[in-house]
Amino acid sequence: MKYYLKLGFVLLIITVIASGILAFINSFTEPIIKFNEQKQKEEARREVHPEAASFDSIGTINNETITVYAARAENDSLIGYTFLAVKYGYSSDVKTMVGLRSDLSINKIKIISQAETPGLGANCTKPEFQEKFSNLKYDNLLVDKDGGNITSITGATITTRTITNSIKEAFDNLDPVLKNTKTEEVTE
């Protein structure tokens, strides 16, 4: 009996020391990790709205899975919105940062993360593909195979359609959130 208590005691000591060390290191790295994550999101938003000076959250849509941000210029006037559209593609969740102008046409999109097939769906991260979405409006969000103008990635219609539909679905629910901010808009 005493022997088994000793075994437990030794293990206890080892785990206590280990968790102590881990906690100590965590206190250093945690803020950096948090900061990195914030910075990454901020950079992604700036990527689709380069001219914006600040972003502020104006509400959530799609059961609070998507947070919509308003992009504002130096003088606080509204220049557009950004949100992160997510949808399952061929083999992974495709996350697309979307930047809208205040007239709801697309300024730019940026694929933030995906794990689609290399060489096919993964080509959606190429700038040539993402540029095709610029200036499109809700009604034009249609892949060429379905009769629209967005040229699908060769051999990866599913990925193209996923990205298009993820943006479209977010669009569908955007209205209520935007109404709240319209009033704050600075008239020029």
């Binding site: 881990l22 290191i25 250093f28 790295t29 945690e30 950096i32 990790i33 990195n36 990454q40």
Partner: peptide, 12 residues
């Protein structure tokens, strides 16, 4: 875990 945390912080 140390490697995981340090990598996440410095080589994201």
């Amino acid at each position: 875990t140390i490697v995981d945390m340090v990598m996440n912080a410095y080589f994201p």
